[in-house]
Design a protein around this nucleic acid. Structure first.
Lengths: 361, 361
DNA sequence: TTTATTTATGCAAACGCTTACAGAAAAAGA
DNA sequence: TCTTTTTCTGTAAGCGTTTGCATAAATAAA
């Protein structure tokens, strides 16, 4: 009580119109808290930002005032004054897939743990938008940028690098070794799945690629080819169908593979969604999985364990991909001098029931 | 030329540290543009905000300076000064489903057309988070809030209303008639699909519900029941299975329905994802679609047309739902006095190939 | 004790913008 | 030509913070 400063000491200059954040009630500011706690606004700021040099009982008094008034810092003001917005931009193509869903979940968890906000930008595959967004973002809207499967990186990666704006690519190899990325062992995943099929006894294994302009697609294919070679099997281009990462691609790919004079006994699709298409095509052809044809996917999305038979697939740690990207981004944001990291997370073969020994062996 | 003000007139007070938005290059401000165009910063602001009373050649000069300097307004500063953040918050459960994906696409398109940014908040069904977010958001981070399928509305709707913070609920009925919402005709959709099956000749129609704590689930069920009643068919509770909106719910629901002493000849699932589960269960039971069992879904997600046979379903205009919500929100934001709207978008029955005349008629 | 340090706190300026207000310039009336 | 009105432009204040600097209080050293 006695310590409380005279209320008059900190008279607010009459404000233009007692700020009312665009809507109803006026929000409590750092000044209100200061008055309530009987300290200066600078001290409140120090408490809020966990700065040193605040006496512990002062700190508590301020904290109490904060809760009692329900004070929340105004990010825009903080950003303007301090140069950080406490927001991170996320640039994605779209959000409909559980692939994206899981990555975003990881990002989101890690980010909110670090008290950051997330600004979402979806390009819907319109190339122009990417560049526009990136320009906006680095103009102070966000402190960092996360790009999932960016499409025309060349158009703005240079800008990003020049301005030293912190960013991390997710599931994209970047343009060179100096790009900070989080990726998975696509090659190894392709290799492992193929080897598994070979070890089951398969000799003719069909492969449905993803979009071939993506390095991850190329890597999965190379892994597949390497496994064949390592086991002395021929690499037959007839067995490779160029897919799209979407379900119809898997369906038509399987149809075309099954129509071959000497059809494969197993089909490896470059993602789960296409594997579902494969499963449908196989069934429509009157064949059974896995007795007639083995099917294997890539990604291990949630649905993979729910279809019948449950899909054997190569798990990508998608959620962890997001989490790791955030970790790296925070490091870069707080420590621009740190050398650039590239994080490679391991894929794992998840064996379920969609693969079996080939019929005629 | 002669009109150009002396450059010295507008000397910047030496800034603390030539702002460099947290990273590398320093960004151009309204002052830089003003100097370049030979006008005051207020005029630049007027041009940027499309205010009246700016001579057209001045405007052009400013515009030229803006492009030549690559100036982008600093949203935080604008927000602090003007009380609007030009950002809208979006609160969702998760993003993995194409249901969400389409709604978000609609939102996103409409919002970026209106030059707004999107702040994303995912709750992952943790109830506490919703309230925390809402509190943060209304503290000036955003100008409005969009809530898709909110879970414990009671916890914060009052706060929202009291502070007069603009918001719109998507695919949720709200607490009463005074809540602004965008919903679809769930009851009618349930009715239409059921009537369609009845008109095909089905007499025993199984129904798999969504999560029953959601009004939309209840409405679809009522629509189903009403259609049965209107056509003089019994409403057999045995034929109703309580699902979850997730695929396994559809699978086990169908299994249980098919095991009935007198199984249905058609199954109506409350969403497409569950309908896929139904299709699997039907196949696993050695039955064919649609010859043995007709299947019908709800939502019309992209996959519905890609499965085999293509799924007959009730289309919800999801993307439009998002678009419409944004439209309503913008109206509320710019015009708080406007009476509250409730927008009800029509569902449509999309007939594909998963339904047929029942076998034994 | 007195002085030198260290720890706490307050003041003021700055962040980049919007906007009320006032004054200048241009247009319209007399 | 001289007012009056309208259109334009500039000045200044303020939005809610952070933070350098100065000063006060507390502690340690002398």
């Amino acid at each position: 009580m006695s310590k409380k400063l005279d209320q008059a000491t900190q008279t607010l200059k009459t404000p233009r119109s007692r700020r009312s954040n665009g809507n109803g009630l006026s929000s409590t500011t750092i000044m209100d808290v200061a008055r309530e706690a009987g300290v200066s606004y600078a001290t409140v700021s120090r408490v809020v930002n966990n700065k040193e040099y605040v006496k512990s009982d002062t700190r508590e008094r301020v904290l109490k005032a904060i809760t009692s008034l329900g004070y929340v810092v105004n990010q825009q003001a903080r950003s303007l004054a301090g140069g950080r917005s406490y927001a991170v931009g996320l640039l994605v193509r779209d959000l409909g897939s559980s692939y994206m869903g899981e990555i975003v979940k990881g990002i989101d968890d890690a980010l909110s743990a670090a008290q950051y906000n997330l600004m979402l930008y979806t390009t819907h595959r319109r190339k122009i938008k990417e560049r526009i967004y990136v320009n906006n973002l680095i103009q102070g809207m966000t402190d960092g940028l996360l790009l999932v499967l960016p499409e025309n990186l060349e158009a703005y990666l240079e800008t990003l690098d020049q301005t030293q704006f912190p960013y991390v690519l997710i599931d994209h190899q970047g343009l060179d070794e100096r790009t900070p990325v989080v990726i998975t062992t696509n090659w190894q995943g392709g290799y492992d799945a193929t080897r598994y099929l070979i070890e089951l006894g398969h000799r003719r294994i069909g492969f449905i690629t993803g979009m071939m302009d993506m390095l991850s697609s190329q890597d999965r294919l190379s892994g597949y080819q390497a496994a064949l070679r390592d086991h002395g099997l021929p690499v037959d281009p007839q067995l490779v169908y160029e897919g799209t990462f979407y379900q119809p691609g898997g369906y038509s790919g399987a149809q075309s593979l099954l129509r071959l004079p000497e059809p494969p006994t197993a089909i490896f699709a470059s993602n789960d969604v296409m594997a579902f298409g494969v499963m449908e095509a196989v069934r429509d052809a009157g064949l059974r999985i896995p007795s007639d044809i083995s099917v294997i996917g890539f990604d291990n999305i949630a649905q993979a364990s729910q279809v019948a038979p449950p899909l054997t697939t190569v798990a990508q740690p998608l959620e962890q991909l997001g989490r790791e990207a955030v970790r790296m981004l925070l490091v870069r944001m707080n420590n621009p001098e740190q050398p650039i990291e590239r994080s490679i997370l391991p894929t794992t073969l998840i064996i379920r029931q969609s693969c079996d020994v080939p019929r005629n062996v």
